[in-house]
Design a protein around this nucleic acid. Structure first.
Lengths: 354, 354
DNA sequence: ATGAAAGCGCTAACAA
DNA sequence: TTGTTAGCGCTTTCAT
C-alpha cells in the first residue's frame, strides 16, 4: 500500500470577529412587542397559536419578527411552559449498521412536529447509561426513546419517575417501562436455525459479539443454539468482542475456518460481519454457499449488493423509528395509544449465500 | 428471492401507568436546599463548582441530591446562566458514510465536557437549511458546527448574528464565517487526476452526484476534469442524483460501461459508490484494475475490505470532528484559538484497484 | 381578541 | 464560605 500525502500550506492565523463578551443583546419578544406596538403575549400567540390572533395584528407581528430577525428562545419557552419540545434518544453507538436507519426514522417525523432530538450514545460503556439518562432527563424532554429492554433497576426507576412517555425499541419485553416496539430476538434465533437446518446444513455456527455489549445478539445466539441442539445438529460459536465491523467479520471467518473447519453454515450477528466473512471467502476461493453458507442480520444495503448476495434477516429499522415517533407524537397530543407493545416482526430474506 | 415471514401474535392493549397530567411535581433545587438545610445557591455551587463549597456541606448536599433523586433542570439553568451547554450540529444526512465518523469525533469530546449535541439534518432539502438553523439557534447553543462552506447569504447572516462560535467543516474557504476545518476538494480532484494519469490511464471518468446536493463532490469533479483536460486525456462523467448508496454505484458502473466503454479508470464520489461499482464488475467478470481501475473517496472501512481492495482518498473524518470539538472547547473556555482555519489534508491510499 | 402580572427553576451578582 | 435578591425570556392565568 503506497501513500501519497497532500496538504496545502498551513492557514492564516487571524482571530475572527465574533466575540461573545461583546455580544450585542439578543432580540427578545419584548423588542418585537414594542416594535409591533402590542403586548408580548400577542407576539407569543401570533407565533404559537396564530388562530388566536386577529389577521391584521398577526400580519404586522409576523412582519416585525421577520424584520428584526427574531428567533424565539426555546430555552425560556421551555422553562415557562414546562415543555421544551425535545425528545431524548439513547442508542449504544452510531457506529453500527442498526442505529442510523432507526434514527432516520425518528428524524423523518419528529423535527417537522417541532421536536428537537437530543441524542446520547454510551459507546459501549454500559455504566455510562445511567449518567447519560440523568443528563438527558435534565433537559426535561417530552419523551424518551431508548434502545433495548434490558436496563439496570436504577435506570428503570429514573425513567419511570421521569413521568414522561418512554419507548423501548429494537427488542420485545413482557414488562415494558411504558411503550415498546421491537421484535423477538429469540424468535430470530429459532427461525434462522430452522431455516438452515431445513436446507440440509449440519454443522452450523453463530458468529458475533458475545459479551454484555450485544445483549440482543446473545439472545439470538442462545435460541439459535438451543434449536440446533434440539434438532441434534452440530453447533459452534465464534466470537470477538471488538466493536462490530467488516474487518471483524473477516477475523471471525478466519477463526471459524481454523477452529471448526467442518462448519457448513454460519449465522452472523449482522450484515457487516457477514460481508467481511464473505470477502475473506472470496480471497481464499472458498465457495459460498457451496463450501459454506452465510446468513447475515438486518438486511443492510451491503447484504443485497455483494456477490453472492447475502441471505439475511430483514429487520424494519427505519420503520421502527418512524413508528416510535408516531406513537410518541400521538401520546403527546393526548390521544389514547391503543397498544403499548408492538411486535413489528422480521423476515428471513433468502438470497444466494445459502 | 424467497421470503419467510415471522411475527408473533399482536400485543396486549392495556394503557400504561405514566400519565403526565397526574405528574407529581418534580424535585427542584429548592427541595434539595430545604432537605439539606442550606440555601439554593449552595446546592447549585455544590453541583457546579464543588470547590467553592466546604467539604462537609458538599457531602451533605450531594447525599441529599442522591437520596431525593434530584436531577438539575438544564433548561432553567440555561436560561439563568445564558449558556445552555448545547452545541448545534448541522449535517446534510446521516445516511452517508462521511457524517457518522465525523459525529463520533464530536461525541468523543463534547458530552464529557457537559455539552449536549443538538443534531439537525436537512435530508437533501437545501431550502430546509435556513429553517433548521433558526430552530437550532432557538436553543441558544454555545456554538454551532455546520458541514460545508457554501451557505446562502441569509444563513451566513444568521450564523454571524448568533454571536456564537461557528465552525465550518469538511471543506475549506478563504472567507470562513468564523472558524473552519477541512481540506481542499479542488486539491483532491487535481491530485487524483494526476495520480491516475501518472499511472498511465488514458480514459478517465468521474462518477457521482452532480447537483447542488453534493457541492463538495462537484468541486472535486471540476478540478479533476480540468486537470485531465490540461493533460490532454479523455475525460468522462456519469452521474446519478439519487442519494448515494452501494446500489447507486452499481447503476453508475452500468451506465459508464454502456456510454463510455473505452474508459479505463473511474474516480467515484465515495467508497460506497466505488464498492457498488466493483461488485458489478465482479458480476460481469470485468477485471479490476486490469480492465478498469477504480478509485474511491473517504477511505471508509469497506474500501479496504473488498476484493480487490480499493484505492481511495483518505479523509480524516473522525479527526475533523474531534479537532472541531477541541477548538470549540478551547474557544468556549476563553482560550485564544491560534488558527481560525485549518487545512487538515488528505492522502491517496493506493491499494489493489489501480 | 388582547394585555398585565406572576412565575417556571435556576444562577449572577452582591452582601454578609 | 454562605445566603439573598433579582431576573434570564417566555407562557400561563386571569382580567379586560
Amino acid at each position: 500500500m503506497a501513500t501519497i500525502r497532500t496538504k496545502s500550506k498551513s492557514s492564516s492565523g487571524q482571530a475572527q470577529i465574533p466575540n461573545p463578551s461583546l455580544s450585542v443583546k439578543r432580540i427578545t419578544i419584548v423588542e418585537v412587542a414594542k416594535a409591533a406596538r402590542v403586548g408580548t403575549m400577542t407576539v407569543s400567540r401570533a407565533l404559537n397559536r396564530p388562530e388566536m390572533v386577529s389577521a391584521d395584528l398577526r400580519k404586522r407581528i409576523l412582519k416585525t419578527v421577520e424584520d428584526l430577525g427574531y428567533i424565539p428562545n426555546r430555552v425560556a419557552g421551555g422553562l415557562a411552559s414546562g415543555t421544551a419540545k425535545a425528545i431524548s434518544v439513547i442508542v449504544p453507538t452510531l457506529n453500527h449498521p442498526v442505529y442510523v436507519p432507526f434514527l432516520e426514522g425518528l428524524y423523518s417525523l419528529l423535527p417537522q412536529e417541532g421536536y428537537q432530538i437530543l441524542l446520547g450514545t454510551n459507546e459501549y460503556q454500559l455504566d455510562a447509561e445511567e449518567n447519560l439518562i440523568a443528563t438527558l432527563l435534565g433537559w426535561q424532554p417530552d419523551a424518551i426513546v431508548i434502545a433495548g429492554v434490558d436496563h439496570s433497576l436504577r435506570t428503570r426507576n429514573m425513567l419511570a419517575q421521569a413521568r414522561v412517555p418512554v419507548i423501548e425499541i429494537m427488542d420485545l419485553t413482557e414488562v415494558p417501562i411504558d411503550m415498546n416496539i421491537g421484535f423477538s430476538h429469540e424468535q430470530v434465533g429459532i427461525a434462522t436455525a430452522n431455516f438452515l437446518a431445513d436446507r440440509g446444513y449440519r454443522h452450523i455456527a453463530y458468529a458475533g459479539m458475545l459479551s454484555q455489549l450485544d445483549l440482543r445478539g446473545a439472545k439470538r445466539m442462545k435460541s439459535f443454539v438451543t434449536t440446533l441442539k434440539r434438532r441434534k445438529l452440530g453447533h459452534y460459536i465464534v466470537s470477538n468482542d471488538k466493536p462490530s465491523s467488516i474487518g471483524v467479520g473477516k477475523t471471525l471467518m478466519v477463526d471459524l475456518l481454523e477452529k471448526h473447519p467442518q462448519v457448513d453454515a454460519v449465522f452472523f450477528a449482522n450484515d457487516d460481519l457477514a460481508a467481511g466473512a464473505l470477502f475473506e471467502c472470496q480471497r481464499r476461493k472458498i465457495r459460498v454457499p457451496k463450501d459454506i453458507a452465510i446468513v447475515g442480520f438486518n438486511d443492510s444495503e451491503i447484504a443485497s449488493q455483494v456477490n453472492p448476495a447475502l441471505t439475511t434477516v430483514s429487520t424494519p429499522r427505519f420503520e421502527m423509528g418512524r413508528l416510535a415517533a408516531d406513537m410518541l407524537l400521538r401520546r403527546l397530543r393526548g390521544t389514547r395509544v391503543d397498544s403499548a407493545r408492538i411486535d413489528i416482526g422480521f423476515r428471513i430474506v433468502e438470497r444466494e449465500s445459502t
